[in-house]
């Protein structure tokens, strides 16, 4: 059970992080200018091109990843520790 939750937390948070940063970043780059998350403006300051993906979507994906990790931390706090052999010199593998 713990292994499953560990795995889900790792894969889900990692997947959301990579999706929000790398995958959407790649799509944005391939979609042409602006290559970044900020709109492209002309000399008069008028927006001439907007990012292909709203930065709010990308930040939401990363925040969701953080929430998954936060929930995992709460879960670890709430459940009994299965094994504890940790010291400073040989850190535990249970936490």
């Amino acid at each position: 059970m713990t292994d499953t939750i560990d795995r889900v937390a790792m894969y889900l948070s990692g997947g959301l992080l990579l999706l929000g940063i790398v995958v959407t970043g790649l799509i944005e780059t391939l979609a042409g200018k602006p290559y970044g998350a900020a709109p492209q403006t002309n000399e008069a300051g008028e927006v001439i091109a907007s990012p292909a993906i709203d930065p709010n979507i990308r930040t939401a994906l990363v925040v969701a990843a953080l929430l998954v990790m936060g929930l995992y931390a709460v879960y670890k706090l709430a459940t009994p520790i299965e094994e504890d052999t940790g010291t400073a010199a040989t850190p535990s593998t249970s936490d």
Partner: peptide, 23 residues
């Protein structure tokens, strides 16, 4: 560090515009 994550989430998301990209 958990507190730091809260702060930096607000700084990162709040510094909208992302003139230097999301990363």
């Amino acid at each position: 560090s958990f507190g730091g994550v809260i702060f930096m989430s607000l700084f990162w998301v709040g510094n909208a515009g992302f003139g230097h990209g999301v990363v």
